[in-house]
Structure formats: C-alpha cells, structure tokens
Design a protein around this nucleic acid. Structure first.
Length: 268
DNA sequence: AGGTCGACCTGGCAGC
DNA sequence: TGCTGCCAGGTCGACC
C-alpha cells in the first residue's frame, strides 16, 4: 500500500507519538507477519526504548536501546496505528510502559516485521537505489540509468534499485506532470526529459508528503487518518475520466503486470 | 544480464 | 442472496 510519502508521514507521526517510549508487552496475534522467530522478536523488544525512527525506501526502521532495529515493511495493506482499537486485522499489539499502544494491522498479511542487529542482513536495503531527495539522485544519474537500456520509463520508476520509494500511484503522476508517455523506452529519454523526471519526481513526492499521502483503499496514517493527496491526483485510477489538461479520457494499460494510467494526448 | 511474470494473501466490488 | 472473476498502493524468485 504505502509509498514513500505515506511512509514518511507515518514516520513523522510516530516520532511525535512513540519516540523514546519503552516496550512493556508484545502480543503477536499472527506470527505469519514476522520474519524472525517469535521468541527472538519478543526477547529483543521487551524492555527496549525507541531511540530513533527512520525511513528507507518504503520501510520503517526503529532503532532500539539494545542497538538492534525493528524493521517494518508495510507492503500493500500494513498499518501502524498509535492508540487505536484492535480489530480482526490487528496482527501485533505493542504496549508501552506508559500504557500507550501501537497496533500493526495488515489485511493481506504481505507486510513483514523483523528484528535485526545489522541492516545489511536485509536484502532489500542492500539492493535499494538512492533516496529521491538524496543528492545521488540527480539528472545525470537518471541519464546514466537510461543509457542503452530497453524498458518502458514507467517500469524504471517502479524499479527500487533505480530509486527508492516510488510506487504505482506516484510513477503515474510523475510521468503525467512530465508529459512523458509511460511506454517510452528509457533509451529514448533526452537530457531535458531526464531533468524533468528529476524535478517532477521531487515535486510530486514533496507535495504528497505535504498532503500527508494518498488514501486509495487502506492507507491510514499513525493516527488512523486518511491522506489528502487524492484530490491532487490527475491520472491514477481515473480511467475514462477527463484529463485535467485536455479533457480527453484517461487511459489504462498494463505494464509489467500492473495498471498504468495516463493521458495519450498530453503524454508523448 | 536485463527485464518480465506469477505468487504471495485477503477482501471489496461489479456482474450475472 | 450468492457465486465468479477481477482488482488492489509491494517485493521476490523463477523464468525468458
């Protein structure tokens, strides 16, 4: 579910809600979501204080007072809700010493939670590309990655070894703002388009963070609220509706097995 | 080697 | 009402 702006919003909320709190009790209702043993999960969390919270790609990392990290990948339907009521999708209940509670909810159970000593133990972090807001992500880097390659530009944006954190919604929105057809092969991306891709990527993601993310179906922030970026979305999930630029209908196609939405007139 | 596809799961919704 | 089929924001391993 959540892409970079949503995870960033959750991270920011959790900093205000649970940073420096100490785990008192962990109730794992569905150990399917764990990627380490239940015993280890509880042993390394109980009594530990959350020292810091960071986001890398679409993953959230909480550093603990014992030097280990609680790594949460929300995938499609995972939610971290502070102070909500458990429901049938609640997989883990974290209780703090001050009585506050953090829930991990996950309808589809794709999400993963684990405790690690060293982040390099997780393959995802080893192959992940640069953060969009990092200086390593820039027009030159984009050109470099496009050179002599044969794949549609939409697929490149979704490739997390190219850039971290962009998912299906924002890939569609970035390409719309660039006026680039999602089927365009990256080898045919020109210098000015690489610059445009860079600028619109930052613009869309920053705007989405400012609006606290997009809620299509399941996304909720750490307080259980929906994101507000939906009303800024111009193409995603708008098949058949009028393009905000030229009024012609938005088209839906499948690329790499996933829906792509775009305006065939505005995106060349 | 680079790129794509299906599987992993559950549930909502449209159509019959 | 109840069934079927399709769809969903991510990621990985198998395959071409």
């Amino acid at each position: 579910m959540p892409e970079l702006p949503e995870v960033e919003t959750i991270k920011h909320d959790l900093e205000n809600l649970i940073l420096h709190k100490t785990f008192r009790h962990i109730e794992v209702r569905d150990s399917f979501v764990l990627r380490c043993s239940l015993k280890k999960f509880i042993r390394h969390l109980k009594g530990q204080t959350i020292k810091g919270i960071i986001r890398r790609g679409k993953a959230l990392l909480m550093s603990l007072s014992n030097g280990r990290h609680l790594v949460v990948q929300l995938m499609m339907t995972g939610q971290l809700i502070a102070d909500g009521k458990p429901d049938k999708h609640t997989r883990v209940v974290f209780e703090f010493t001050d009585g506050d509670v953090l829930l991990y909810n996950d309808q589809r159970r794709f999400g993963q939670l684990r405790i690690v000593k060293d982040l390099r133990q997780i393959k995802y972090f080893n192959i992940l590309g640069p953060e969009p807001f990092d200086q390593n992500f820039n027009p030159d880097y984009i050109r470099q990655c496009c050179r002599d390659r044969r794949r549609p530009v939409k697929n490149l944006l979704l490739d997390h070894t190219f850039v971290a954190g962009i998912g299906n919604i924002y890939a569609c929105e970035i390409l719309f703002r660039c006026g680039i057809n999602p089927k365009r092969l990256v080898g045919r991306i020109k210098a000015h388009q690489a610059k445009d891709l860079y600028e619109k990527t930052l613009e869309v993601l920053q705007e989405a963070i400012d609006y606290r993310g997009s809620s299509m179906r399941n996304y909720r922030d750490a307080s259980g609220q929906k994101g507000e970026f939906n009303r800024r979305i111009r193409v995603y999930a708008r098949e058949g509706r009028a393009c905000s630029g030229c009024q012609s209908p938005i088209k839906r196609i499948i690329q790499a097995g996933r829906s792509t939405f775009f305006c065939p007139k505005c995106q060349k």
